[in-house]
Amino acid sequence: STAYVEALRDALIPRHELWFAYTMNDPAAREAAASSLRRLVNLPFEADDIHLTTGGFAAIALALKAVADPGDEVVYSLPPWFLYESLVLEAGLVPVKVTIDPATFDLDLDAIAAAITPRTRIVILCTPNNPTGRVYPAATLQRLAAVLDEASARTGRRIYIVSDEPYNRIVYDGAAFRSPLEFYPHAFLAYSYGKTLLAPGQRIGYLALPPAMPSREEMRDAIRTLQFATGFLFPNAVLQYALPRLEELRFDIDLFQRKRNLMVDALREIGYRVSRSEGTFYLFPESPIGDDEAFVRILAERGILVMPGRIFETPGYFRISLTATLETIEASLPGFAAAFAAAAA
């Protein structure tokens, strides 16, 4: 947007001789992020709880390394964001994958509880979820907190949540987003600005600590040390200076809700089985044939590019992104109908 470009252009203008020097956690940027997060999550975050990173990738990597030792286990649900496994393995940790409720796309808390062992150190959540669009309700998050408290007491070792929340401002139908940090203080919040600003190439995000986290000051120190030790995981100076203005920009919920409704209603009329996503800008329909990769190729032949469910370790589905224009989405509908007919033939 023009406002986005103007914010970056203004931040490029030096205010002093050290404007382009090493910049670690610019105070104004941290305060802007903390203020925004306080309004969203209704927890009293302080500026020092915000650790600015080069996007959500780095925030998750920092959280993994801050509390887990090599060989520890990390539990997450399928379908996941497709780079969780790479981040877990790079940290020397062991991925443990569990299924979800296929009817609701909600967490399967019994499966999570059954997967916990004495080596479990972290549970990764993504809400609103990529790729399903599910927003985990408060009741689910409360029950998960109870599961993790009980398991931590039983194993004698605290289990942490890493809450991956790059879409926490993208929630539809007037729903209120609830973060796992509201229910469980042994948690990290990983955020990326790339989704709400639709600018993923400009790498800026943060790792936030909840105000009630035990030993919070020690954890702040550990994360600061890791940001240097892992290769200076701070955003470039210009993005940090621009952040207060970037926080003022708003994602067009109404437009994306219109795009979601248009696509869901049209796909259902064609015959697809698809849930109406509660958040994110994705849909995760079932493939009309078992081989989702083959169906993705059928769509591609008609000029429609989507991602197969196998990328998300969930064969039989495919992911649609609604970041195209409304006109492009409307123009794609005959292609979706033709692909469905071809698959049924």
Rank of each mutant, 00 (worst) to 15 (best):
T2Y: 13
T2H: 14
L8A: 04
P27N: 06
D49T: 02
L52R: 04
F57P: 09
L62A: 00
A68E: 05
D72Y: 12
V74P: 02
V75K: 11
W81P: 11
F82L: 10
Y84D: 04
Y84F: 15
Y84I: 07
L87N: 03
L89M: 13
L93K: 06
L93V: 01
P95D: 04
P102I: 08
D110H: 06
A111S: 10
I112T: 01
A113N: 14
I116F: 04
T117Y: 08
T120Y: 10
L125H: 01
L125Q: 01
N129R: 09
N129M: 02
N130S: 13
A138N: 02
L141H: 07
L144G: 02
A145I: 03
E150L: 07
A151Y: 01
S152W: 12
S152N: 12
I159L: 07
Y160R: 04
I161N: 08
P166A: 07
D173I: 03
G174N: 02
A175E: 12
F177P: 04
P185Q: 02
H186Q: 03
L189A: 12
Y191D: 13
K195D: 15
A199V: 12
Q202C: 13
A208C: 11
P214F: 13
R216E: 07
E217R: 15
D221K: 15
D221R: 15
I223N: 01
L226A: 07
A237T: 08
V238S: 05
A242F: 05
P244L: 09
E248C: 05
F251D: 03
I253C: 05
I253E: 03
R260M: 05
M263D: 04
A266W: 06
A266F: 04
A266P: 06
L267A: 07
E269C: 01
Y272C: 05
R273F: 08
F281D: 11
F284P: 04
S287N: 14
P288I: 10
D291Y: 12
E293M: 11
A294M: 03
V296K: 14
L299S: 11
R302D: 00
G303A: 00
G309C: 02
G309Q: 01
R310S: 10
T314Y: 12
T314R: 14
E327I: 06
E327D: 15
T328P: 00
A331D: 14
L333Q: 05
A338M: 10
A345N: 15
A345Q: 15
